[in-house]
Design a protein around this nucleic acid. Sequence first.
DNA 1: AGCACA
Length: 244
Amino acid sequence: MLSGDIPPSQTIYIKNLNEKVKKEELKRSLYALFSQYGRILDVVALKTPKLRGQAWVVFTEITAASNAVRQMQNFPFYDKPMIFDSVQIASLISLRERIQYAKTKSDCIAKEDGSYDKKKKQEEKAERKRRAEEAQQSTMPNGASAQNGGSTASFRHGNSSAQEAVAPNNILFIENLPHEATSMMLEMLFQQYPGFREVRMIEAKPGIAFVEFEDDQQSSMAMQTLQGFKITPQNPMTITFAKK
DNA sequence: AGCACA
């Protein structure tokens, strides 16, 4: 079940993002997460009903986009110093399935390579609008909003003994950090997520840290997007909920 | 679920 039949491009399409995260916040997080794969030209995210929860990250190089897609696909399960629990595996799987190449060229790329055609663009837009209106007409105009908190915090994987070990917590436990990691570096990374409170590191225990958020959902969001983030290439960080 | 360029 790979990313389907869409050919590689400089732009990756990401779906299933938390719709509650503010647009700017989301763009910044994606930028932070994906800039490890190469230079990013643009991050596009809109909050319109049709486009919320999705984003496009435009790289300067196709290879960077491919790396981003591939890295997420082959998430480093086996490099991890600890055994993965079902919650983490579930969140990794959902991460993997969220990322594909974009179907069409990003405007910022088309502008670069001269293929950007403003007229055509407007026609396409008008066309989309017309079709959307048609669709509106055939259904009853009724704002059916299927709200699904979209949180990773509420997994319902049978096995209650496993669940005990991984109960969501507003405090995250970070492992496999390079020894040169500082609390400021972690702060830069985590503070971009809503609800961030503080980073705590322990002098005597290098390689680990605790990161506190206001609540479980906010910590989950940060965990999900920063899971495996590499401060150095050798050190994908492992994030779990701290034990209560 | 959902592929745009506010």
